[in-house]
């Protein structure tokens, strides 16, 4: 990755957070993106995991710093306001991009995803690019799968003002309730031959009205995973990418000598080689 070509394109860091109900496949999507790999049997994420991956576009290199968070509300560390830090929960504090994942074979997971979107629009930074992703596309029939068309890219910078209109009456805290709401009778009836519970059209319509990028994808087959992250990288307005906020005293001391290179970071070399998309 660190070839001579790259050195002219300085990597811009983008903090990206994955959110969504437990077991929808957040960690699997990250694994696919970062290591182009899939594992049937993972472990639930406790707290959060952190990985990095670069994504090369024509005119720039985006380095994603990915926070893969826990799905079960109670094992998320960031639920409580931290008196020593800012009020916004730390995983998506300063995040420039968020991938909100649901499982297309589980209707309730979309409800949870919607709650996350609301929460992000209320609490996260105003320029955040949000992508809604229906995962496990491989589990539904072929025709349903082929109908999954990526949503037209939305210029988040232009529309951002409309995004933040909700008052956020209910949000992340509805997690406990989300499971019970609205069973989806239509889904089961019309696609009795498949496991699909969330229609592409329905989720897409919601994504459009909320100004989200939208994909259906499969971590298992890798379908649309690369496109998803590339699209996010493209959508992030280059001028809004502020340098990573530097806490006081951060750059002091010899510890940061290695950092000046900008390309040297832990574990990055091996991960980047196997990169899925870029």
């Amino acid at each position: 990755m660190a070839s001579s070509d790259d050195s002219s394109l300085k990597a811009v860091q983008v903090k990206l957070v994955l959110l969504g109900e437990a077991a929808v496949g957040k960690s699997s999507l990250v694994l696919r993106f970062v290591q182009n790999d899939f594992n049937e049997n993972t472990s639930p994420t406790i707290g959060a995991a952190f990985l990095t991956q670069k994504c090369r576009l024509e005119n720039r290199v985006v380095k994603f710093e990915i926070w893969d968070t826990a799905g079960q509300e109670r094992v998320r560390l960031d639920r409580y306001p931290d008196p020593f830090h800012s009020l916004a929960p730390m995983y998506y504090r300063n995040a420039q991009a968020a991938v909100v994942v649901y499982d297309i074979t589980k209707a309730s997971s979309l409800e949870k995803a919607k709650a996350w979107v609301k929460e992000l629009q209320r609490q996260a930074s105003p320029n955040i690019v949000i992508a809604l992703v229906g995962n496990k596309l491989d589990l539904v029939n072929d025709d349903a799968a082929s109908s999954a068309v990526p949503a037209p890219p939305v210029d988040a910078a232009d529309d951002e003002d409309e995004v933040k209109s909700t008052d956020g009456e209910d949000d992340e805290d509805t997690a406990d309730e989300a499971g019970s709401s609205k069973p989806r009778p239509a889904a089961a009836a019309s696609t009795s031959d498949s496991l699909r519970q969330v229609y592409t059209a329905e989720a897409e319509a919601y994504a459009k009205e909320s100004n989200l990028l939208f994909y259906e994808a499969s971590a298992k087959t890798g379908q649309n995973v690369g496109d998803l992250f590339t699209e996010i990288a493209k959508t992030i307005p280059i001028d809004t990418i502020a340098p990573k906020p530097v806490p006081a005293g951060r750059r002091s001391g010899a510890a940061n000598a290695a950092q000046t290179d900008g390309n040297v970071n832990l574990g990055e070399g091996s991960q980047a080689k196997k990169g899925g998309c870029c």
Partner: peptide, 22 residues
Amino acid sequence: SQSTDEIEKDLNRSLPEYKAYQ
């Protein structure tokens, strides 16, 4: 219950590397 649903999701995500849990 909500708990049994959550348990179900995690069953094959519990030390999957150990044979018995396959």
